Amino acid sequence: MSLPPHKPTVLVVDDVPANLRLISELLQEHYQVRVATSGAQALRIVDRTIPDLILLDVMMPEMDGHEVCRRLKADPKTCDVPVLFLSARSQDEDECLGFALGASDYLNKPISPPILLARVQTQIRLKVATDQLRLQNTFLDQQVMARTRELQATHDVTILALASLAETRDNETGNHLRRTQHYVRALAEELRHHPRFSADLDEQSIELMFKSAPLHDIGKVGISDHILLKPGRFEPAEFEIMKTHAQLGYQALVHAEELLGAQVPFLRIAKEIALCHHEKWDGSGYPRGLVGDAIPVSARLMALADVYDAVISRRVYKSEMSHQTAAAIIYDGAGRHFDPDVVAAFKVLEEKFEQIARCFADTDSEEPK
């Protein structure tokens, strides 16, 4: 490996002028040489311009080479600059101390010109190679991060596109998807340190719940228009068909995984929400009649978010209602429809729910009253 085309900078630190002249004359053909006659001066120089290598005398007054090296290695800006100690001390313990402080090499005085040149050249080459590797790794890290962001964006767009398929079947729900995912995240953040929920609500899980929430009604794609868009109450047989959308949504996500030939981590919560957001705390919900803690946490949060938004929003079968009406329905459902602790979190977050509803209102007339 040859030296780089530009001349690397070597800082020589020694309190003896004759030593500085000798070393400078040896190095100046191949390197840009800077000199310092004290440790303090060396640190001031390095603070302005970081050299490629430092030749550092050990025995200097006021601040010795060991202290200078400690400070250089403690500073993130200079910790990677190779330091070669120069010393008349040649005992093993002296060299061991130098290496322990982070020196790259240790040269004994009086200096041997060929050895000095060879050692300096070796350390400069190592630094050049290390810097190139660091730059390459930084570039690769940036590429990986960019690709990860691209994949994440594709993932998010895919979720919203799938969810929108269901929402286009019911064009009066408007921003229902965006509101419910923000309700879910608000509830999750409020409950994340609760002893009953902390194991299920780490930062990653909360983010997955937020992004998966729009898929809760994906199964509506499989419901006939004459039922889905019916302006009045369902007949019993029609309601039984409508209830199948939970299972249909779950099966669609399972089928997607089967096509991929592997389970997809982010779909785990999406499947929970799609299948179980109509389950009720007392076991009277559907499709499986789950009771209490058997209902996944993500689905319990989605259940409250979905009911709240359904009440305050206009539907083909009803007009929008007030926040107060929605809150009363939720409080009345504590312990029957909803997990009581989730209802308690909603009570803390009532103002937040109203803010979300206003922020993502479909029209002025749909803002909570």
Rank of each mutant, 00 (worst) to 15 (best):
V81R: 03
L43G: 07
R71V: 07
L53V: 09
K77R: 15
R44W: 11
L43S: 05
D47E: 15
C79V: 10
L56C: 13
M63R: 09
P82K: 05
I54E: 13
S38R: 06
A74K: 14
A40H: 10
P82M: 04
H66Q: 15
P61Y: 14
Q41Y: 14
G65A: 09
L43R: 03
D57H: 14
V81N: 11
M63V: 07
L53N: 12
D80E: 15
P76F: 00
Q41T: 09
D75L: 09
I45N: 00
S38K: 14
D52M: 00
E62S: 08
L72P: 13
G65P: 01
I54H: 14
T49M: 11
D57F: 03
A42M: 05
V83T: 03
A40E: 14
P51N: 13
C69M: 06
C69W: 02
P82E: 13
C69E: 01
K73P: 03
M59K: 12
R71N: 07
A42S: 11
R70Y: 04
R44Q: 14
I54D: 13
V68H: 02
D64L: 00
G65S: 10
C69H: 00
L43H: 02
A74N: 10
I45M: 09
G39E: 02
P51E: 09
L72K: 00
I54N: 08
M60Q: 11
S38V: 05
L72T: 02
L72E: 05
R70C: 06
T37P: 08
V83R: 00
T37H: 12
D64C: 02
R71D: 03
R71S: 07
C69S: 02
E62C: 05
R48C: 14
A42E: 05
V35Q: 09
R70D: 04
L56H: 04
L56Y: 04
L53T: 02
I54L: 10
I50H: 06
D52V: 05
R70F: 08
L56I: 08
L55D: 01
D80V: 11
D57K: 04
K73H: 03
M59H: 15
L53R: 10
Q41N: 09
T78P: 06
L43M: 09
M59E: 15
Q41W: 10
L56D: 06
E67K: 15
H66D: 13
R48P: 11
M60P: 08
D64I: 00
R48I: 12
P51R: 13
P76G: 02
E67M: 12
D64G: 10
D52N: 08
R44L: 10
M59S: 14
A40I: 12
T78N: 05
C69Q: 04
Q41E: 10
T49A: 13
I45W: 12
A36N: 08
K77F: 06
Q41F: 13
V68E: 06
T78K: 00
L56N: 01
R44C: 15
H66S: 10
V35W: 03
V58W: 03
V46Y: 10
H66F: 15
R71I: 07
